[in-house]
């Protein structure tokens, strides 16, 4: 039982990273109806920025600066590569983000080099003892930070003018435009928010083990998370991320004993298995809105 709880906490920790990334995907999707495949690159760029800034400013300030920096990069990408494509088929825009992702990653890989870069976080791989459960401190830090960020984000959408504008634009772009909402601003804001969230997620991915040129693949696990939660549901993204994280962690702990025939490292692909299973039952995810189309 103790083992189950410990791996549950680890799952919530990694799951909250997926949740942050998934939120970025969903925010962009709701605003522009496009899945941004550039999130992995932004995530890894955030982690690498922290790993450089931390030597100058200390960890917490570095995270803040990196978040702002990556939000700026995301804004620039949106302005240069995405805005000219407004009105084009979503598939085209999605593929453009894929191209952007490749380009940014090549640049970032230049900064990573061949070694593993440490983000210089205060937790490392140290353990914490909570009521008899021994877990790594960083899982708890991830979970708490994500909880705070998600709370702030939902408050932002609920109570601020800009949040209202974003909700309006997501609901109906043309009507929002007619009511004086600057939809271009909403696009930019959504990319900025997603970039910032990706940078924070990247930093957490880098805690403990550091980042190397292959770390970006972790960000792709947020895709199953948004599919499980439903593409257009913010709450679904958070829940999907946590579910994916917990399932992955449990499989990692017990699959070796219970189902060794699935092969080593099966945990790495469990997010995709979960996604396929959920889609078989609910094609629009757990909380997604079924697409209703008029002919």
């Amino acid at each position: 039982m103790k083992g189950v709880l410990e791996s549950l906490i680890r799952g919530l920790g990694t799951g909250s990273v997926y949740a942050l990334l998934a939120l970025g995907f969903v925010i962009i999707y709701k605003a522009t109806r496009v899945i941004s495949f550039a999130q992995p690159a932004l995530m890894i760029a955030g982690a690498v920025a922290v790993s450089y800034l931390v030597q100058v400013t200390g960890f917490y300030l570095a995270v803040l600066l990196s978040t702002l920096l990556i939000a700026g990069v995301a804004l620039a990408v949106e302005r240069v590569a995405i805005r000219p494509m407004v009105g084009r088929p979503v598939f085209v825009v999605a593929i453009i983000t894929l191209g952007v992702d490749v380009v940014i990653r090549v640049v970032v890989n230049g900064f990573i080099g061949l070694d593993v870069r440490q983000v210089g976080d205060p937790w490392g791989l140290r353990l914490a003892d909570i009521g008899g459960l021994v877990v790594q401190q960083r899982w708890i830090a991830m979970f708490l930070t994500t909880a705070v960020l998600v709370g702030l984000l939902f408050a932002f959408f609920r109570y601020t003018r800009y949040g209202l504008a974003m909700r309006a634009a997501a609901f109906d772009q043309e009507t929002a435009l007619a009511q004086g909402v600057s939809v271009g601003m909403v696009f930019a804001l959504s990319w900025g928010l997603a970039g910032g969230l990706a940078a924070v997620a990247g930093t957490f991915v880098g805690t403990g083990q550091g980042v190397d040129q292959l770390t970006w693949i972790i960000a792709l696990k947020a895709l199953p998370a948004i599919i499980v939660g439903g593409l257009d549901s913010l709450g679904g993204a958070v829940i999907g991320g946590l579910v994916i994280g917990v399932v992955e962690s449990l499989v990692q702990s017990y699959q070796g004993d219970l189902a060794p025939w699935l092969g080593q490292n099966f945990a790495v692909v469990t997010p995709y298995v979960v996604m396929l299973l959920v889609l078989l039952v609910r094609p629009y995810g757990l909380f997604g809105t079924p697409e209703v189309e008029r002919v």
């Binding site: 979503v90 598939f91 895709l223 599919i227 490292n265 692909v269 889609l279």
Partner: peptide, 24 residues
Amino acid sequence: RLRGLYLAIVTLGLVFLGEHIFKE
């Protein structure tokens, strides 16, 4: 059953599952 981007992500999952199967 799926359309557009849902389909793209599912087929992306297929690549990862396939990679795992072929490696193991």
